[in-house]
């Protein structure tokens, strides 16, 4: 870690928001770096100043009374007088909202089910002997291996120089269909990249975590991608940017 890289990490460290690995990295950098030590003290001075200068403005007693009164009158307010011409418009709005809710709920349920299955597949792959069917750090070995096994060709790249070495690939089954799984390393952790052509299913995009595993999904063209790992979501984003520059 050099100073330029740690300029932002300094703030995460100061705020106690780095994960254990990055915090340890930053600490070992800081031991040898007088500039970062001084910067950390500057942040402390700044925080002390902000917190001790009585800059916080709370609510006045008058405002509290006003709010209490408003809440009281809000509750006493008479039921709204119906304007009958609003009824059809209102019904239409309700219908549209219901459709929208149904569609998004369905999509959300699909995304939750899919990612639960992807995380299961990731966990399964960590068991001895399950990680890779073709074990190679050479993209020109891994890519042809998929040939004939799948009805599509997944993009295969090796990102060793950027700290994400390609370890191999295997076939996996998600939602009853064959998908390509590429395995990358990140320090001592493993990342599974699942790829499949998604022409019928809705696109799934976003990130979240479940049971301590982070996932990050996106769609490029008609290919669906999903990264699953126990590394930080920042690491997953970095890998995503390498896969899809």
């Amino acid at each position: 870690m050099n100073c330029e890289l740690s300029a932002t990490a300094l703030h995460g460290y100061f705020d106690g928001e780095l994960d254990a690995v990055r915090a340890a990295e930053f600490e070992s950098h800081m031991q040898a770096c007088a500039q970062c030590q001084a910067s950390l003290n500057t942040l402390k001075s700044l925080r002390d100043g902000l917190q001790k200068s009585d800059l916080y403005q709370g609510a006045s007693a008058r405002l509290r009374t006003r709010i209490a009164e408003e809440l009281g009158s809000e509750n006493r307010a008479a039921a709204p007088r119906w304007k009958w011409f609003l009824v059809p418009a209102f019904s239409l709005a309700v219908l549209l909202i219901a459709i929208w809710v149904a569609v998004t709920t369905q999509h959300r349920a699909y995304s939750a089910r899919l990612h639960a299955e992807l995380i299961d597949a990731h966990v399964r792959s960590l068991q001895p002997g399950h990680l890779t069917d073709v074990q190679s750090t050479d993209q020109h070995t891994v890519k042809p291996w998929f040939d004939g096994k799948l009805d599509f060709i997944p993009p295969v790249g090796d990102f060793s120089p950027q700290g994400f070495p390609l370890l191999g690939g295997r076939l996996d089954v998600i939602e009853g269909r064959d998908v390509a799984a590429l395995v990358y390393g990140r320090r001592k952790h493993l990342i599974n990249l699942f790829v499949w052509p998604a022409t019928r299913e809705p696109a799934v995009a976003g990130e979240d975590s479940q049971h301590g595993y982070n996932w990050l999904s996106w769609r490029t063209g008609d290919m669906q991608f999903c990264l699953v790992s126990d590394v930080s979501s920042a690491d997953l984003k970095e890998l995503k940017d390498l896969i899809r520059p």
């Binding site: 001084a38 003290n41 500057t42 001075s45 002390d48 100043g49 001790k52 200068s53 009585d54």
Partner: peptide, 15 residues
């Protein structure tokens, strides 16, 4: 680089 801690301490103590 950030200003040094002493400078900030002095400036930030002035509300």
């Amino acid at each position: 680089p950030l200003p040094n801690p002493e400078t900030i301490a002095v400036q930030a103590s002035d509300r």
